[in-house]
Design a protein around this nucleic acid. Structure first.
Length: 370
RNA sequence: GGAGAGGUACCCGAGUGGCCAAAGGGAGCAGACUGUAAAUCUGCCGGCGAAGCCUUCGGAGGUUCGAAUCCUCCCCUCUCCA
């Protein structure tokens, strides 16, 4: 089997950004990259063919949700997640660590792992570092994440420290549990907004040794300044030769700042969820398509946008579909937003290739002032 | 012609002496959303506004300290009988 290999093609001369290439058994991923979120073995409302047409190179799947339904063992029997959902390109799976945060009301954290009370039927399930690795092995993702605890914000220094240390212990157990070298395993740096905890966590994870390193528990409610401080301080300390993944982030601006700090992989539900909630991204900021201002607007979401939606449909039509709760609204909006996100990443990769990322970034920020 | 039911805010619809500027829906308007329990959630929704004040429950009178609610007359709608 082919191991996941990461090469850096160019470093930007003016900042920490880099243009890289991640080779997986399911294709090459050009970085920096945005991974659309396909929690339940689907990027909501789109087909795999549409995702490929949009230029998606790698998707994110979720261990917790697929374990609960339909079951990772079942997906394994059915040929793995790629075959199951008919996605031929790369997949990264989250370990369920985010659900420790998002489903905090129905779980209990212990040293052994986290006991979830299923949000589907109330039954109890222990997810441990070992089971999280096992689940992801059954899913057959190209990149697996260690089982961690995603912290909420704010948390006390003491809790952040205890949680971080437990996440490190869990990371070591995850590494020990991994059997196959053809599935990459990434460690996750925790420590909330406390930079010294983040540094200590990263050092310990490096000592264990992972194929890539991620920043977790960011954009969970902390002030943007805090997020940028952690991002700007910790990212440069992460191993240069390994892929760096900023988990769950973020807005278009966040992606640009992340790339600038040296991040290679991103994922976020924002383009897909917000699309379903009527918020559409453009170079000049976002719009709420349901606003009455668009009722008679015969122009596209964004002038010059090459996406399917903008090539054919007016804002007035999209507003109508959304207000009428027509299913097509969710699809068309999602197509546009993902196109925007993926094109944004492609534009950054191109700027990096030409060594002019900073100039590109200034133009990006200027356009959003309008 | 007779018997009965009913007219409440943009629409539907609760309320039948004070806790009512009036429940609840819907529509409308706006906002939020960051490793997805999300096609979800939140706010506003008579007027001016900080408190507060003003106008409002088909119309006009009346009873009462106080009326969407009780009384009188009028207008209109619906159902059944002839």
């Amino acid at each position: 089997m082919v191991e996941v290999v990461f090469d850096i093609l160019t470093h930007d001369p003016d900042c920490a950004a880099r243009r890289g290439r991640l080779v997986t058994a399911h294709g090459t991923v050009e970085t920096p990259v945005f991974m659309p979120v396909g929690t339940q073995a689907t990027v909501k409302s789109l087909t795999p063919d549409e995702l490929q047409s949009l230029g998606a190179q790698i998707l994110l799947g979720n261990s917790y949700h697929l374990h609960m339904r339909p079951g990772a063992d079942r997906i394994g029997r059915l040929g793995g997640l790629h075959a199951f959902m008919q996605w031929p390109r790369a997949i990264l799976t989250d370990s369920g660590g985010f659900q420790v945060f998002s489903l905090a009301r129905i779980n209990q954290i212990e040293e052994a792992g986290v006991t979830f009370q299923s949000h589907i039927d109330g039954s109890r399930h222990l997810i441990s570092p070992e089971t999280a690795v096992q689940i992801q092995l059954q899913l057959g993702s190209d990149i697996a994440m260690v089982f961690d605890e995603c912290n909420s914000y704010p948390v006390s220094y003491q809790y952040a420290q205890e949680s971080m240390q437990r996440t490190v212990r869990w990371a070591a157990r995850s590494k020990a549990a991994r059997e196959h070298g053809d599935q990459a395993l990434f460690g996750i740096v925790q420590g909330s907004v406390f930079v010294d905890l983040r540094k200590a966590c990263l050092e310990q994870l490096e000592a264990i040794g992972f194929d890539g390193y991620a920043l977790g528990s960011l954009s969970v409610g902390e002030p943007k300044e805090e997020m940028l401080t952690v991002l700007g301080t910790i990212t440069p300390l992460m191993p240069v030769s390994r892929p760096r993944y900023l988990m769950g982030v973020g807005t278009p601006e966040d992606l640009v700042e992340g790339v600038r700090a040296g991040i290679d992989l991103f994922d976020c539900v924002m383009p897909t969820r917000n699309a379903r909630n009527g918020m559409l991204f453009t170079a000049h900021g976002s719009i709420q398509i349901k606003n009455s201002a668009y009722a008679d607007d015969d122009g596209p979401i964004e002038e010059g946008c090459a996406c399917y939606t903008c090539q054919r449909f007016s804002r007035a039509y999209l507003r109508h579909l959304f207000v009428a709760r027509e299913l097509l609204a969710y699809r068309l909006n999602t197509l546009h937003n993902l196109h925007y996100y993926l094109q944004l990443m492609a534009a950054m990769r191109e700027a990096l290739e030409h060594g002019r990322f900073e100039g590109w970034r200034r133009a990006f920020l200027k356009a959003r002032q309008r």
